[in-house]
């Protein structure tokens, strides 16, 4: 297993007028949960189209486990949830899953059991499963789509906006399913605009803009990661100078003060612990200290050229 290799992939539409992908190179390791974020029209869906072998690149190459992406051996171990989900509306949810179970070449003997389990997995009960897909709500469709993508526990899972139209409980459920996929060693490629979700499930994230990978963020390294610590005091904060001094003594850097909040850049967990101790020693009534999330949001809004939030 060599994972996914994308080399200088270029793809245009309308005889070259639209450059949807422009020299994208990525290597996604087996077992990695890889996020792709970027503005509308950035080329994320086009990239998934190429990964599935649905779109032919103008230049460059893609291999999945060393095979061409449309190799049937790869299709057999791939689950896919498209951005514009259109299912066979006349079928029942359970019938649809049974059909895809058969198409995927999974054993007929376990079909009924697998379908029931797949429905339950995404929070659809047997009544919903028996209903015609044309009577499904938007979120139910999306749930059924994900159940379909995860049939047979595929080794590769490609998801284009999986949580769109899904209620908050569904979002939490989807996150759990992705973590389960990771736990069994699946390689997941995920397009999403829900940055907090991406931040919570992905090991690495590529920021794509106008067909190019503009930045790459590694999210998995929790303890060792440089980040911003937000501190909230129970009362008034001391002066800016006093805070800066305490921070410098602990090897951290004061970024911003807006009493009762202050933001510090820290290098890792140990530095964060030293900072909190120093603040308490300096008489700051620390009520709360938390790592600031939203790294991806900043990447998105400020662009890769701006400092990524970590000092």
């Amino acid at each position: 297993m060599t994972g996914i290799r994308i080399e200088t992939l270029t793809r245009t539409y309308r005889a070259g007028q639209v450059r949807a992908l422009d020299g994208v190179s990525l290597a996604i390791a087996p077992g990695e949960v890889f996020g792709i974020i970027g503005p509308n029209g950035a080329g994320k869906t086009t990239l998934l189209g190429c990964l599935l072998g649905f779109l032919r690149p103008d230049a460059g190459s893609i291999t999945v486990d060393g095979h061409a992406p449309d190799d049937l051996a790869i299709r057999r171990v791939t689950g896919y949830l498209p951005e514009r989900l259109t299912l066979d509306r006349w079928m029942s949810g359970a019938g649809f899953l049974a059909y895809h179970h058969a198409l995927a070449g999974l054993a007929a003997a376990s079909r009924a059991r697998d379908v029931a389990a797949a429905l339950e997995r995404v929070g659809l009960d047997a009544t919903a499963g028996a209903r015609a897909i044309r009577r499904y709500s938007r979120g139910m469709l999306q749930r059924l789509g994900l159940a379909q993508a995860l049939l047979g526990d595929p080794r590769y899972v490609f998801l284009d906006e999986p949580a769109s139209g899904v209620d908050p409980a569904g979002v939490v459920l989807f996150r759990r399913l992705l973590n389960e996929a990771r736990a069994r060693g699946a390689t997941v490629v995920l397009n999403s605009h829900q940055l907090d979700q991406v931040e919570r499930v992905c090991d690495r994230v590529a920021f794509v803009s106008r067909g190019r990978v503009e930045a790459m963020e590694t999210l998995a390294a929790g303890a060792a990661a440089a980040r911003v610590l937000r501190v909230r005091a129970a009362g008034a904060l001391p002066t800016r100078e006093a805070l800066a001094l305490a921070a410098a003594g602990a090897g951290a850097e004061l970024l911003e003060v807006a009493s009762p909040l202050a933001r510090f850049a820290v290098a890792d967990d140990a530095a964060a612990a030293r900072l909190v101790a120093a603040l308490v020693a300096a008489g700051v009534p620390v009520a709360e200290a938390a790592s600031e999330e939203g790294r991806l949001e900043r990447l998105f809004l400020e662009g890769p050229a701006a400092p990524g939030g970590s000092a």
Partner: peptide
């Protein structure tokens, strides 16, 4: 035109 082919052809089907 309905788009159902996308899912079908993502399966191991020639």
């Amino acid at each position: 035109s309905s788009g159902t082919l996308q899912l079908l052809l993502a399966r191991p089907v020639r």
